[in-house]
């Protein structure tokens, strides 16, 4: 119990840094996808590693603040939400790295990746907006983000059905698009998890999203 909320500010600064890492890596991944660049695996891996270190830091800070301040009510929720957020953000990073991995596995020069590229843009925007909702403690915005996940799912299924709708495409392209869409769909799910945490943080009620 304390009125000194410095610890929450420090935790939030850490979370903002994690999101920055995801933004930077996201831009690299998008660029690689559009231009079908290969060989970025080790670069992406470095990002993934650094975000994991940050996740550990956030955990440590959260546990430390529970020990030191024994927060209750909204303070307690803020700490537990921060712990979950740091996990979600490190997962997002991991998925971005998975896209790079997949890109390295396939010969995609002749593939049409417009759909998945657009999907990645939207998923990244969802993460961005859910973080914004977190920092602004905006439960309404968070609820909207969760709703928008339906369209992501729909587009993911559309890409999956390419082998039926565009049977002339190369098998490798069908496979690549399907795999990548699957990864991005999971990434968007984590944006929704973050949003549902924001709702819990603000209202104290759990949505059964996860």
């Amino acid at each position: 119990m304390t009125t000194d909320l410095e610890y929450l500010n420090r935790i939030n600064a850490m979370i903002a840094q994690m999101q920055e890492i995801n933004e930077t890596l996201g831009a690299i991944v998008q660029d690689a996808l559009k231009n079908k660049k290969q060989g970025l695996r080790s670069t992406a891996y470095e990002f993934s590693k650094s975000i994991q270190l940050k996740e550990d830091d956030v955990m440590e800070m959260c546990v430390g603040s529970i020990i030191r301040y024994q927060p209750f009510a909204s303070d307690l929720r803020a700490v537990t939400v921060a712990m979950k957020l740091s996990y979600d953000l490190s997962r997002v990073c991991r998925y971005l790295y998975n896209v790079i991995e997949t890109l390295d596995e396939f010969e995609v020069k002749s593939c049409d990746v417009k759909e998945v590229s657009a999907l990645l843009d939207d998923a990244r925007e969802m993460v961005r907006q859910s973080l914004k909702a977190y920092f602004e403690r905006d439960a309404k915005k968070a609820a909207e983000i969760i709703k928008s996940d339906d369209s992501i799912d729909q587009r993911y299924r559309m890409i999956l059905s390419m082998h039926r709708t565009k049977p002339t495409s190369k098998t490798e392209c069908i496979l690549f698009n399907g795999l990548t869409a699957r990864i991005i769909e999971r990434l968007a799910d984590h944006a929704c998890y973050i949003s549902s945490e924001v709702i819990y943080l603000v209202t104290g009620r759990r949505t059964d999203y996860r």
Binding site: F72, A73, S74, L76, R77, G204, R205
Partner: peptide, 10 residues
């Protein structure tokens, strides 16, 4: 202690 309903309690 997790989610009080009243602002005063909080």
């Amino acid at each position: 202690f997790e989610s009080p309903k009243n602002q005063l309690t909080e």
